[in-house]
């Protein structure tokens, strides 16, 4: 193990390390902690200039209550859910199939199609912006959740295919050969042999895509406009316009907007990290 395990070093260094850990963490999360403190302060603290002192009273319930009952925040959150969940389902379903096709079958253009997905996944969003916006307008889907979902599904299929194909490649190929010898139809091999083995990959991809889509901002402002379809990342700017200079409310709003992916991460940590670091180890 590298660096040298701390248990094997001197007692003083061990204690120093134990003390350094929380200190480093606080430093690392300082900007965020500041916002958390802001979000429970009363408004009066900001007018009296008590920015960094102890909150003069605990107003957490009040502030977060206003975010939920006094603004469009719940609406935006719901929009985000209705955009994120269908995208996750769509992209994972499509890429299970493309990943299966590219991971199992040998045909001439296999690697080229795979590279098309990988390359497409890396392009800058701006090269797609004008045509995709135009396309969405033409289909009458501008400023709808569906328009956003369809694009996200298509774009995320690139990354998901890369992921699924590499995962399926690592499965034992003998299983498929054995099934073929038994005379089982190819689509049955997919459904009954490969899909059950892909559960960990599906879980990992789902949490990853959930986070990516929830946090998307660019496409949200390009393809949607109003409270009826904008997700929370775009909605937070109108929220901040509503509560201009009310820092305690803006902080509470930001924390609410950031929370769902954070909760997802802590609940599914193992899958999340397995997904992010696929390929980081040989």
């Amino acid at each position: 193990m590298f660096p040298k395990p701390i248990e094997k070093s001197s007692r003083t260094w061990q204690l120093t390390y134990q003390g350094l850990l929380p200190l480093a963490l606080i430093m690392w999360l300082l900007p965020l902690l500041a916002v958390a403190v802001f979000s429970i302060k009363p408004e009066a603290d900001f007018t009296t200039g008590n920015y960094w002192g102890f909150p003069s009273s605990f107003e957490g319930f009040n502030n977060y209550g206003r975010v939920f009952f006094d603004s469009d925040m719940p609406r935006y959150l719901l929009n985000s859910v209705f955009i994120t969940v269908p995208t996750v389902i769509g992209a994972v379903a499509l890429s299970c199939m493309t990943g299966f096709a590219l991971g199992i079958y040998k045909f001439k253009s296999n690697l080229w199609i795979f590279f098309m997905f990988v390359a497409g996944n890396f392009v800058p969003f701006q090269i797609l912006m004008v045509p995709v916006r135009d396309l969405t307008l033409d289909m009458g889907l501008y400023n709808t959740k569906l328009g956003l979902v369809l694009f996200h599904v298509a774009f995320q299929t690139g990354f998901c295919t890369l992921f699924m194909r590499n995962f399926i490649r690592a499965l034992p190929f003998e299983l498929i050969e054995a099934a073929r010898v038994e005379g089982i139809a190819e689509w049955r091999i997919f459904v009954y042999v490969v899909l059950p083995l892909m559960k960990p990959a599906i879980a990992a991809l789902s949490v990853l895509i959930f986070t990516f889509i929830w946090n998307d901002y660019f496409w949200a402002i390009v393809l949607t406009q109003g409270v009826e379809s904008q997700p929370v990342t775009a909605g937070i700017t109108s929220f901040n316009a509503q509560f201009r200079a009310a820092y305690h409310l803006m902080s509470a709003g930001s924390i609410v907007a950031a929370l769902p992916p954070v909760a997802m991460f802590f609940l599914m940590q193992k899958h999340f990290i397995a997904g992010l670091t696929l390929g980081a180890v040989k």
């Binding site: 499509l94 493309t98 797609l128 004008v130 045509p131 298509a154 073929r180």
Partner: peptide, 28 residues
Amino acid sequence: QIGISPWLFLAPGILFFAFYVIFPIFQS
């Protein structure tokens, strides 16, 4: 079967991806 199946599995993904990602690059 083995020759055609991969294309059936690929079709929806490729169509979506071509429609929303590949063609728009050229359109741009």
